[in-house]
Simulated assay, not measured.
Amino acid sequence: MANGWSLLVGFVVIVALSAAAYFFSPKGENQTIWRSTLILSFASCYIMWAITFLAQWHPLIEPKMSKLRPGYPGGS
């Protein structure tokens, strides 16, 4: 599933998990802390995954073989 839909599917899953964390967080004095912690954790994990995914999907630096003979296309 290495295409652009991966980002959208991942985002939808994170939004669903964040909504579940918002509504099903334990009631009480620390409810806001629970909500904030879970939602920020989901968002941070998604951003880290998306950055890693995009860096591998469209690399900025193209790998080159250094052991090719001179005069060969791509060689030095």
Rank of each mutant, 00 (worst) to 15 (best):
H58V: 13
S18G: 08
K64M: 09
L60F: 11
G71N: 11
N3C: 06
T52R: 14
S44G: 08
I33Y: 08
G4F: 04
M65P: 13
Q31F: 09
H58S: 15
W5T: 14
W5F: 14
K27C: 04
G28V: 03
A20G: 06
N30D: 14
S6G: 11
S66L: 07
K64L: 10
R69T: 14
V9G: 03
P73E: 03
K64Y: 12
G75W: 01
P70A: 01
T32M: 12
F23K: 10
P63I: 03
F11C: 07
A55F: 03
Y46W: 03
F42C: 02
A19W: 03
L17N: 06
H58W: 14
M65V: 15
W49N: 05
F23L: 05
F11Q: 13
T52Y: 14
I47T: 11
K27S: 11
Q31N: 13
R35P: 02
S66W: 09
V13A: 02
L38G: 00
E62W: 09
P59G: 05
F23P: 05
K27T: 13
F24P: 03
V15N: 01
I14M: 08
A43M: 00
G74F: 02
Q31H: 13
I51N: 04
K27Y: 09
W49K: 05
I14W: 05
L68C: 04
M65S: 14
L7R: 05
S76D: 14
Y72V: 13
L8S: 13
Y46T: 00
A16T: 08
P59N: 08
Y72S: 10
I61N: 13
